[in-house]
Amino acid sequence: MKKYSIDGKFLATLPVGYSPTDVTQVDQSQVAISLYNKVLIVDSTDLELLQTFDLQGISVNGLCFIDHDQFIVSYSSTLTWINSSSGQKIKERTTNGSSYFISTSNKKDYICCDGNSAASRVVGKTTKFTYTSSQLSYPRGMGIDFVGNIYIWIWF
């Protein structure tokens, strides 16, 4: 992992292992990094590894922090909620696939790819909407801006 200032100056590096797949902000001084079956908690000020959660039997690609004490990790057709203090699995939800990345706007909802040509917004246990389009081919990365617009990177 490499840290840069807002103006693009290199600040520090921290070896985190092979092929990190996502990063999410936990609080003002910590970030979490996803690897194949791990979540690393890193002090973002000093770029120090604080904690490693080895998620035996849970594959991880996407990662977001929610509700002050949970992560959602995503992989293929599975979303898994993980306690951010213990690394223990809380619950799991199955999607229609291609849920490699997940994003949240207000820590109480999430948006994920939900099949090869769909993306869904879920609040609690309720799917608020599902956008489906043949142009949304194998969606991958996604994000939400400060006013709630959703951006989805698709595979060409």
Rank of each mutant, 00 (worst) to 15 (best):
S117N: 15
Y100A: 01
T80F: 05
N149Q: 13
V123M: 09
P139A: 03
T24G: 06
D69N: 15
W153D: 14
F156L: 11
I6D: 15
F10C: 04
S59K: 11
S99F: 01
F129S: 07
W81S: 08
I33W: 00
D22L: 04
G87Q: 02
D69A: 13
N116S: 14
V16Q: 00
Y4W: 05
K128C: 12
R93D: 14
I41A: 04
V23I: 11
G57D: 06
T127H: 00
D7Q: 15
S5C: 03
Q28N: 14
L47F: 06
I154K: 14
I111F: 03
G87L: 04
C64H: 08
G17W: 02
S76T: 10
N96K: 11
E92A: 10
F146I: 15
D69M: 12
L35R: 01
P20G: 02
F53T: 00
L79V: 02
M142W: 06
G141L: 05
I41W: 02
T104I: 06
T95N: 02
I102Q: 01
S34M: 02
K108W: 10
I33R: 00
L50F: 04
K9R: 15
T24Y: 07
E48D: 15
I6R: 13
Y138E: 06
Y4E: 04
T52V: 13
Q30V: 08
I66R: 05
E92Y: 09
G143N: 11
R121G: 07
G62V: 00
V26P: 12
Y151H: 04
K107I: 09
C113I: 07
I102V: 09
I150N: 08
S105H: 13
C112S: 12
N116E: 13
L136C: 07
S120L: 00
D46W: 13
V122L: 01
F101Q: 09
F101I: 08
S59R: 11
D67F: 06
M1S: 08
D27K: 05
I90N: 06
W155I: 12
